[in-house]
């Protein structure tokens, strides 16, 4: 990012250890106020850890994270997260699950009702308000997880492999729905994924993490036009980018790929 004044999230020199294990060391990252940054990296390299630190669920051992100038030390109300395993409460109806955050913040009843209804409509779960999570498919549960995050109108949305526990067809459907939702209300987003396709499709930039401790190995600008639809996937730029990210990920260090420390 060049326009750092525009940056919503600034991660500076982030360091984190689990005991003797250095997971993050000197990691820098920014996310603009309406930017989607995809994060890819080998399994166990620290993507979830980084996301949790940004969410305030884990604490750094060194360095800082600022969101809109505010230092992150605990979860901020302007940040929402969508979890890989949905994390819906099985004892709450879909409606109550989605209303959870607003209720905890003691919003007025009618405001909760209208915002929850809107979010449910947005993710296409109308008619299932009174269903319980165990009565819904994985795809529907993650729609609910998405609605629960979106209803908070977050300034930064954190997504940790949100679609990885969902079957391939539903996943594809949800990716485009996510893009459509973002088009309607662009917001800053950190999107962690294992799938290179998904990273390129969703992101304005793809950040490739690698190494132990993890550092930013490469950053790829994705200049595909928005709104993006299915036709993007077969465009030459998409295919080229996918290839580049693949090399960023799997080529041995010391090759020709761009390296950023």
């Amino acid at each position: 990012m060049t326009e750092s004044a525009q940056a919503r999230l600034v991660v500076e020199n982030a360091c984190l250890r689990y005991g003797a294990l250095d997971v993050l060391a000197g990691l820098n990252l920014t996310v603009g106020s309406t930017e989607i940054v995809s994060i890819v990296g080998p399994s166990g390299c620290g993507k979830t850890t980084l996301l949790r630190c940004v969410g305030g669920l884990n604490q750094l051992n060194g360095g800082t994270i600022h969101i809109d100038g505010q230092r992150v030390e605990k979860p901020l109300p302007s940040v929402s997260m969508v979890f890989q395993h949905f994390g819906l409460f099985p004892w709450k109806s879909l409606w109550s699950n989605i209303a959870y955050g607003l209720k905890l913040r003691h919003r007025p009843k009618d405001e909760i009702a209208s915002r929850v209804a809107e979010a449910i409509e947005l993710v296409g779960l109308k008619g299932f308000e009174q269903s319980y999570p165990h009565q819904l498919s994985g795809g529907m549960q993650q729609r609910a997880g998405l609605a629960r995050a979106l209803v908070m109108e977050p300034k930064l949305l954190l997504m940790d492999e949100p679609f990885s526990a969902i079957d391939a067809q539903t996943r594809e459907q949800l990716q485009f729905e996510m893009l459509r939702i973002w088009d309607r209300r662009p917001t800053a987003m950190m999107f962690v994924t294992h799938a290179i396709d998904e990273a390129v499709l969703m992101g304005d930039r793809v950040v490739v993490l690698a190494g132990r401790p993890a550092h930013v190995r490469a950053v790829r600008e994705v200049n595909l036009p928005r709104p993006r639809d299915r036709s993007v996937v077969s465009s030459p730029e998409f295919i080229k980018l996918r290839e580049q990210v693949w090399h960023d990920l799997f080529d041995q260090p010391g090759g020709t790929q761009a390296r950023v420390q």
Partner: peptide, 8 residues
């Protein structure tokens, strides 16, 4: 995590 994230 969900509770913490949403301000419980």
């Amino acid at each position: 995590d969900v509770g913490q994230m949403f301000g419980a």
